[in-house]
Computed example of a mutant assay.
Amino acid sequence: MTDSTANGGTKPFRFGVVAPLRTDLPTWRDRLHRIADSGYSTLLMPDVPQWQPAPAPTLAVAATLTGLRVGSWVYASPLRPAWSTAWEAHSLSVLTEGRFEMGIGTGRPGIEDELRDLGLPAVPPSERLTQVRETVTALRDLDGPDLHTPVVMAVRGPKAQALAADLADTVAVALMPGDERDEITRMVRDFRARVTRDVELAQHVAVIGDAVAPFMAPPDTDTAALHAADSLAVLPEDPAAAAEEIQRRREELGFSYFVFGADFADTLAPVVADLAGH
C-alpha cells in the first residue's frame, strides 16, 4: 500500500455536487448545466423528506438533462424497507444506463426524532447498520451478473467501517463538528489498513472559507471552531489554496472524491477544471 490510497494506487480526482431542487425548475436546470459544463462528475441528492422532491425521480430527471453521473448522498437506511431502497437503486442504474451511485448510511444525528414524526420505528444504530447490509445484498441480487451499481457508504464507528470494508465501492468518513484533523487522520489510516479491495475514499466538504453549504451541515455550524480544529470539513475559498489542500489530502490520506454544496460549485469550478481526472 502506498501513502495515498486504500488499495495501493493513486485514484484520479473526481468531484460531486449536492444540488437539491429548491428553486423553480428552470433555475435548477440551468444550475445543473453549469455544473456539468464545469467538469463535475456527479450530481447528488440528500434523502430528507420535505426538503425537496424525492431523490429517485429528481435524479432520473437530472440524468436525462445532463451526462452527469447521479447519486444519493445518502439514503438513510431506516426511512424505507431494505428491499424498497435496493429496488429503487437498481431501477435508477437501469434507467441511467449505469450512471447511478447508491450512497447509503444509517442516518444523520437526530434522525430518531424524524423517524418518530414520520410514524416509523426509531431503531437503534446496530439495526440500522443491519438494514444497510440487507439493502446492499438485495441490490447485488437485483443487479445480477451484468450490472454493478456502485455503493457509497457514509461511515463513522468501527462496525460501520468494517461493513464498508466488505461492501462499499466508495467510503466517506462522516465528520462531526468537534473532529480535529489528527483524529480523523488516525481513523482514515486505520480504515485503510484493514481494506484489501479497490476502495475509493470520499470527502464531504460542508464549509468553504466561512460559508456553510445548505443541506450539508446545520446553518448554525461554528465555522471558527472548525478552522481552529483544522477540520477536514473545511476548504479555503481561494481556488488555488483549495486545490493545494485537496492534493495534500489525497497524498496524505487517499481522498480522491470530493463533494461540495451547489452554492459553491461556481466558486470551485477552477479547482475542478484543474484537477478532475488527474
Rank of each mutant, 00 (worst) to 15 (best):
G8T: 02
A162S: 10
V155W: 01
M187F: 15
V272N: 02
M216R: 05
D220T: 06
A265Q: 10
D37Q: 11
F13A: 01
W83V: 14
L68I: 03
G98I: 03
R128M: 01
A122D: 01
E183R: 15
V94I: 13
S91D: 14
W73A: 13
A54N: 13
I184M: 04
A165V: 08
V188I: 09
L275W: 00
M176E: 15
H90A: 11
V272S: 00
A202P: 09
D37P: 06
P270T: 07
R22Q: 15
A224W: 11
S38E: 10
A233M: 12
V123S: 08
P239T: 00
P12F: 03
D47Y: 13
H278E: 15
R14A: 11
V152K: 13
V195D: 06
P145R: 05
V205G: 01
W51D: 13
P46I: 10
D263W: 14
S93L: 11
H204I: 01
G107E: 08
G110Y: 00
H148D: 10
L275G: 01
T185K: 15
D146E: 08
A60G: 10
E101K: 12
G119H: 04
D182M: 11
S77P: 07
E245I: 02
G107C: 07
T130Q: 15
H33T: 14
K159L: 11
A76L: 07
A62L: 06
M102T: 02
Y257E: 08
P55L: 00
R250C: 00
F215S: 14
G254L: 00
V17N: 00
A160M: 03
T221Q: 10
F260L: 10
D266I: 06
L253V: 05
W28M: 10
V272D: 00
V70E: 00
V123G: 03
D182S: 14
I35N: 04
R194Y: 04
A243P: 06
P109W: 06
G8V: 05
P218D: 06
W28K: 07
D141A: 14
V155C: 03
A225I: 06
D179P: 08
A60D: 02
P121D: 01
I35A: 05
V74R: 05
D141N: 11
A273Y: 01
A206V: 02
R197C: 06
S41C: 12
V205C: 05
A54G: 12
V18P: 05
P109S: 09
S91H: 10
V151D: 11
A138W: 13
D179G: 03
H278S: 15
L232I: 09
E252L: 09
V188F: 15
R128L: 02
V234R: 01
V48D: 12
D24K: 09
D141V: 15
D274G: 04
A202H: 02
D198L: 04
E200A: 02
V195C: 07
T10P: 10
P121I: 03
G8W: 04
H33S: 13
P49M: 07
R34M: 13
A241F: 10
V61N: 05
T23D: 11
D117F: 12
D220W: 05
